[in-house]
Structure formats: C-alpha cells, structure tokens
Nucleic acid binder design. Structure first.
Lengths: 205, 205
DNA sequence: CGGCTGAAGAATTTATAAATCATTCAAACG
DNA sequence: CGTTTGAATGATTTATAAATTCTTCAGCCG
C-alpha cells in the first residue's frame, strides 16, 4: 500500500467511525480532518466529496458481503439450498446491521437518493452469483432450462426487493419478514423447477 | 341519504378538492369548513380528525378500484390472463394517478406512516380477489393444487409490493416497471403451474 | 335539547437571522 | 513542483420567536 492509499484508508476509517457513531449528516469534514491530523481542504485530494466517502464505505461493506456470497454460492449443496441460504443471509445481515446501527439506514437512504447507480451496480454484481446458482441448478436437473438466466436473476431480485432494506421498505419485524421471504422464495423456486411452465401469452394488456 | 351522511359527503368532497389541488398539509380545516359554510369545530362532529378525512378519501378510492378488480376477476377468461390484467391494471392506475396528481403520493405516504393498518386491510380485501382467481385456475387445471390459497396470495402480494406504489418504492419509469412486473409474474405463475413443485426442505437456515 | 359556533390551548409550521458546513483555490510550505 | 493549508464563498442547517393550525369544549342558538 502506497502513501496515497494509506491516507485514503485513514480518512475512510476516521469517517466511518464518525458516521457510525454520530450519523452521516452530524459528521463534519473538519472533524474527520482533525481525526486524521490534516485540514478539511486536504481531504478533497483523496475524495471528491463527503458523499464519495459514504459511497466508498458502502462499497467496502458490499465487498465484504461478496466474500460471504461467494462462500455460499460455491458450497457443494443443492442449488435450492444455496438460494435459500443466500437470501436469508442477506436479510438477516442487513436487518441486524440496521437494527444495531440505525446510522446505516441514513447512509443507505442518502445513497439511494443521490447515487442510484450505486445500487444498480451492486445488484448487477449480485446477479453474477445468482446466475451461477441458476446454472448449477439446471445442471443438477432441478431447475428447468432457462432462456436467459440473467433476466431470471433480475426478476428474482425484483420480487425480493422488499427484503433488501427491510426497515426502509416495510417496518415489518424480522419474524414476519422471514415468513414472507420463505413463502416468496418457495413460489419462485417452484417456478424454476423442472416441470414448471411459464404462461404462454401475447400480453395485449 | 340522511342529513348526517349528506354533510359528511360535502365535507369529504370539499376536502378532497383542496387536498388534490394544494396538498394535504397545505390544506387547513378552516378552509374546508369555509367551503362547507360551517365552522372548523363543526367538522369534528363528522370526522374525528383531519387524518380521518384523508383515510375516508383513500377508502373511497379503494372501493372504486375494487369495482374494477371485481370486473376483472369475474371475466370468463383463463385465470392466468386475469392475473396479468389484475396486476397490470393496478400498476397503470396507481402510476398514472400519482404522476398526474403528485398530491396523492403525499396522502399515501402519510397514511402509510400514521395508519399502517389501513394498508393491511386493503391488502386483505385484495386477497379475496386473488384467492378467487387462484381457485378458478386450479379448477381450470392450469394451477397446481394449493395447500392454502390465501397464503399464496399473500406471497404474491409480497413479491409484487414494489409495483404497488411505484414512485415511492423505486423511481423507475413505467416502461421498466412493466418489464419487471411481467417478468416477476411469469416466474410466479410458472411456480403455480401444474407440474411445478415447491422445494422440499427443512429450512435449518 | 341537539346542533353549531368561536374562543382557547397545545402542537406544529413558518419566517428569518445567525451560525455552521461543504467545497474551492490562491498562496504558503517543504 | 507536488502537498498542504486556511481563508473565502455559497449553500445548508440551526435557533428562536411569531404565526398558524388542529382540536377541544363551554356556551349560544333555534
């Protein structure tokens, strides 16, 4: 790690500490700078804006989550079990993270508004994992042949959106969310099963 | 219609006009009272609060929508087509309603926060229609036998939540929403098709 | 006496001035 | 010359007082 990266990391850690403790909007650039023993202006040589620091934090969080995703996906279990583990892991992790640190929700909300592409990119990355499970499932012979696994993954994400930021979308308790997630996944997986057939229609709706 | 109901309706209409034109929070009880040629205090003999007027408005809107739902459900079309029509109708209707009258979103948002039961009740009502279509589809022989159609309907609602208040949940354009709705519905309906099988698992997640 | 008003109170919103903040950049520094 | 600073700037937030607003209810009509 060179000097530049080192300073960047130091800023990121100092900011993360404050964002988590006091919240994003209650943290000032001067405070972060003071923690790093530099001037506020100097931070801008490493990050284009305060929002970019938050985005970098979120990116780091996502990359850590990707490690878990990768582990879950590469297990030698049936595809169906891996799907369940994947989405339940995601629900439990974000739910408890937000419950323990309400400040995370603030950052998520701000990014959702100010950096919508950020979430799209994360979803696209996640789809790589989903496609892998889908293809494994097809090879296993439990999932029917899919025309376009990536699109199918996209639709699974759309159907499971409300479990992604549980507290933002629904204010349901974890129990209820688990119950719904299980039910929706059962339906989706039934739809992927060999023997299932998509409706044939000319959608003149 | 007796005197009481008549006054109630007059208040409701006057309030609705103002809520739609100026928004809920920018409308005062005195203004509504003036429109009805009565004192603000007198409104409280007909509605317990300003919020209750908004709820009554939304209830009326839902009942009107129920008429369309009932029409769609009772058509002599295949169950699958009716499902598509049902949910596409719902998407188009709320999307354009909110687009044309942004004030509706304000009311929806306030009710979501202050009267969560209101939405639950509406969802429960909607499920009656969904269960009907499900049972028809089973009779038709296109849907597999379901253990508990009401729960299945609940799961469909959970999976299609993001299409319910499109602008609040996602800021996607109507095109993209239609595309996703079609995809998710195809998957769900495939999961209901005869031949589809729910995963057997012991969910030790 | 039932129906209505308008004054009164508590809560919320608005208005506005002061303070703080994110960000930029010329100049100082090493 | 590349780094860093700190003052300058425009935007945002905070603080606070004034004004509105929702809601209640004692008392006034008809």
């Amino acid at each position: 790690m060179n000097e530049q990266d080192c300073t960047r990391t130091k800023i990121l850690e100092a900011a993360a500490d404050r964002f988590m403790h006091y919240g994003y909007s209650k943290t000032t650039m001067s405070e972060v700078a003071r923690d790093c023993e530099m001037s506020a202006g100097n931070i801008y040589r490493f990050f284009a804006s305060k929002l970019d620091i938050a985005e970098a934090m979120a990116t780091k969080f996502n990359h850590e989550q990707d490690i878990d995703y990768r582990r879950i996906v590469s297990q030698s279990k049936p595809a169906i079990d891996r799907f369940f583990e994947f989405f339940f892991f995601s629900l439990e992790k974000t739910y408890t993270a937000i419950e323990e640190e309400a400040k995370i929700l603030e950052i998520a909300e701000i990014l959702r508004l100010e950096r919508p592409e950020f979430f799209n990119e994360h979803l696209a990355q996640e789809r790589v994992f989903l496609v892998k499970i889908l293809e494994d499932g097809i090879a296993e012979g439990v999932f029917r042949k899919l025309e376009d696994p990536n699109t199918t993954a996209e639709m699974m994400q759309a159907a499971l959106m409300k479990f992604r930021f549980p507290q933002a979308y629904s204010q349901l308790k974890l129990d209820k969310l688990r119950y719904e997630l299980e039910g929706v996944m059962r339906l989706l997986l039934a739809g992927l099963s060999v023997g299932a057939r998509e409706p044939a229609l000319e959608l003149a709706v």
